[in-house]
Design a protein around this nucleic acid. Sequence first.
RNA 1: GCCGAGGUAGCUCAACGGUAGAGCAGCGCAUUUGUAAUGCGUUGGUUGGAGGUUCAAGUCCUCUCCUCGGCUCCA
Length: 628
Amino acid sequence: MHLTLLAQFRRAYIARNARFCYNSAVMTDEKMHNIRHSFAHILAAAVLKFFPEAKLGVGPVIDNGCFYDFLLPRTLAPEDIKNIEREMKKIIGRNLPFQGQEVSAEEARTIFAKQPFKLELINDLQKHGTTVFDEIESNKKIQDTKYEIQDTKITIYKTGDFLDLCRGGHAQNTKELNPDAFKIEKFSGAYWRGDQSREQMQRIYVVAFETKEELDKYLWQQEEAKKRDHRVLGEKLKLFTFAPEVGPGLPLWLPNGTIIRDQIETYAKEIEAEWGYQRVSTPHIAKEDLYKMSGHIPYYADSMYPPMKLDDGNYYLKAMNCPHTHMIYRAQPHSYRELPIRYAEYGTVYRYELSGTLAGLLRVRGFAQNDAHIYCTKEQAEDEFLKVMQLHEFWYKKVFGIKDFHMRLSLPSADKAKYAGLPEGWQKAVGIIRGAMKRSKLPYTEVEGEAAFYGPKVDFQIKSVIGREETASTNQLDFLAAERFNLAYADADGKEKPVYVIHRAPLGSHERFIAFLIEHYAGAFPAWLHPVQVAVLSIGKGHVAYAKKIAKSLEQENIRTLLRDDNESVGKKIRESEMQKIPYVLILGDKEKSKKTVAVRQRGKGDIGAMKLEKFLKKISDEIKKKK
RNA sequence: GCCGAGGUAGCUCAACGGUAGAGCAGCGCAUUUGUAAUGCGUUGGUUGGAGGUUCAAGUCCUCUCCUCGGCUCCA
């Protein structure tokens, strides 16, 4: 049980990491790195001042600053943070040098006799030559116990009377640290070495820059990012909500949000039809037998809602669409002439994610996936995978104008026992994917240890305008489904052969993708997506009938129109339209009525003058059609 | 799940252990407005929920639900 919990937590943080990795917009050159590293030492020294019995963990550099983990006799309060920050400034003001020194492991043990975590690190250094947990694990596996470092030299650094284990990379002197350009940003709990079974420590985060201006800019950017937060905009624009009575992580889509969902879904259906997909539809639940067959039960049961016990066995809410879709493939025998077969479904799935990891629409427990499964021959697999990559390129570059993206190929870790299937299968699958990736000419990186249990996967990482990187879509090449589900086709020679299955979801889920789009556009959706495409405002009583007529004409052309003929001031109606980020506002008064025109106000541009309704209709229809 | 911080009107936020308030939204009346807020009036609350302490609880304690931040970074 414990192991599965740990696994669940690890999976959670991997997924979370993928989407919450903030990338520094400013330089991370060596000098800044050293300064940030130095701040970690100063932080630890300051904490020791108030908590002499504190046990020190590690203090690495991260984007925009550093953190340090401590085991403290009590939990920190905001007051402590102020004191620690003040103390850090004092220490910096003393102009202390950072002095490095190499000692033997034995000497290091004496120096850090009262620091159990440091002793653990010294042991690891001596035994494995590293303190990185994953490296230690793979060293154990690959090199057994042969790997032993003789004469380990341990570097320690001294700042004033503070000593720390540290491989170096510091400022020469605290003089180089700008006492006005850092801030303790936040503090929180963190497990020692990310392991739920180990001590829960308190982590203090520091952001640090060269100048106060840079710090201020960073803090300002954080404020701006908050304004774009999809949770904030989702409420302002009335897109979605949550209800405690429904349950955490289960979003309710309001009419405005549903329009956006429907627009995306309708377009996805259109595009998928063009690209040779057929639509299918499957139920939301299935018997346990299906998930035993798929192999999900041992790996995934913890992430599924618990089963409903019925007379004929246990039923689960589906956490993925693949097994259902495979049953559709299996419903009939298939010939090589039919392949590839591409079954698409905007399928709703439910996953019991850890409560602490839920976040707005970004991480939910029920969501609709832009899913499809492609059944093909081994020979077709590379081409099909390439097409999937090209479909991504179409969506991201062409439709949504997202230029900053790359693919991440996840391979199995050294610990192969964790994954089902034979190594040859894996190698073939990896070869097919690599071939497709290269041909796609899209940028990609490879990482080890995060593949799905049934095959290597390719994640699409996109970066939003506020610099947050997210996994927008996950794609897999599955060479095991054929065996598990008996998915085959009759080849030209009359023999039955296994199919390769590609899982793909370019638009991820409605929930996460729309969360991304809200932040990407800061709520100012292009006309084709915006819930209200045009607001029609009457100026006075005498223009209500004209406004109604114009609104009706727009509606007849399927333009989503909001009529504002109520007794409010024009200023107020305009303000409210602006706050709802409506792309076009038509203002109708005496001039327009007499000349039979509409005065157009375009979002971001202001008043663009009066024109005939036909001209405006052409303009907005073009825009909607071109999805600009 | 774990650590921490929160939860007061639809929203944003006030209120020393002593009568729960404001702005916006809503509603009503007046106004009929020319490119980001017209004026006046007014409804609205078991202070997330359940217990407890107290003469008295939004405020203190316990439990619980929900939200937010964090839980990869490695001398």
